[in-house]
Design a protein around this nucleic acid. Structure first.
Lengths: 203, 203
DNA sequence: CAATGAGTACACCGATCAGTATACATTAAA
DNA sequence: TTTAATGTATACTGATCGGTGTACTCATTG
């Protein structure tokens, strides 16, 4: 098994990911990917039997990468939160989203973009996108583990809606504040629904 | 000026809009549009000098149609709201969004989808999408005209973020509840920020 | 009737698309 | 050293892309 520091397959996936993200999936031809990767066409088709397969591998790779980015962001911002300590992790999550949506290369959520390019709900790409979103909700629930809530899942869904809204709004209208808007709303919801959180007693 | 009940141009725009919405813009070829419209290729290129121009005309048409749909929805649901009457119009707006996102042909927001297909922020399509979103925010502000608020615009932006989130979430994860989730959050924010609304005095 | 403008039918263009075929080079393990 | 796997280079396929050229029909209008 000949392989450099990175396998050709991995290199192709990473190159394709960049291009798909910047130019869209249907806006990026196979030849463009090969050109940027410096890899022969035959090699690509030895690893993937079609462009669709490359697209799916790309989205799976992005899923891993994105979740890792989120977790790193939460770790980074968790300690910088003021106010109620049990809220720190969820609020840090929104800071992570904010950092991402205001970064220079930000171009929306790859999964939202992909499912916009493949609108049919039964298309594999669309299915993968739905799975990713479900994973994010699950992660948000984990972040709220320490908070006494009547229905943690429902609040996680609300936060997911807020997140998607912030991402899309930031992308379409170039609004650098969108994620902070979402964070503020999230904080309101937290204080509203957290029953008997210390230092938050009603009057 | 020969013209049937509808001008060829209008017919082309409406046909293209349907197809672009269902199959994506880059996923729909000119020939497909012509086939469905039953119009000669030359006719199309007499009205539009490129596909991009047709796309833009389509988005402008959709903007009109969408705003009309929103206004009709608000009128329809306004009287059916319970609780604080000055909130009725904004809450009806979310019901209109809910009706749309749960309708059979719903396939996301055409503008969000379009700007996902054309990720570059300076592309004309992206610019039109941003304009549309700004129009919606303006409309939301109008709906809140009767509510005493410290910063109506900020709340309108929050509602826009909620709306985008609901739309995207409904589309990507087939969540029929997304818009109702957004409405609930909106109601919370309204009661929280509406200063001195009757029957809403503190304590 | 003549002229004009709008639409049609259809052939055609070069470019690009995803994907294949073939022949050769490199590498590493047996 | 032989063998097999992996990758490269390049040419090619058939389909489709957006867009053009041309000759025609048809209805209106002066």
């Amino acid at each position: 098994m000949a392989q450099g520091r990175k396998s050709k397959r991995e290199h192709l996936v990473e190159t394709a990911q960049q291009l798909f993200y910047r130019e869209g999936i249907k806006g990026t031809g196979i030849d463009t990917v090969l050109e940027h990767a410096g890899v022969a066409k035959r090699t690509l088709y030895n690893h993937f039997k079609s462009k669709d397969e490359l697209v799916i591998a790309t989205l799976q790779h992005r899923d891993q990468e994105f979740m890792a980015m989120l977790k790193a962001g939460v770790k980074k911002y968790e300690s910088k939160q003021t106010g109620e300590p049990i809220f720190a992790r969820v609020l840090a999550y929104f800071d992570a989203i904010a950092e991402w949506t205001t970064s220079r290369q930000f171009s929306g959520c790859m999964f939202i973009n992909a499912s916009a390019e493949y609108p049919r709900q039964d298309h594999p790409v669309h299915v993968i996108c739905a799975m990713h979103k479900r994973l994010v909700i699950q992660y948000i629930e984990e972040l709220m583990a320490g908070i006494p809530l009547a229905d943690p899942h429902e609040l996680a869904v609300q936060f997911a809606v807020l997140t998607d809204g912030a991402i899309v709004n930031a992308h379409t209208t170039s609004n650098k504040n969108a994620a902070q808007v979402a964070k503020q709303i999230a904080l309101s919801l937290l204080t509203m629904h957290a029953a008997g959180a210390p230092a938050d007693h009603k009057q």
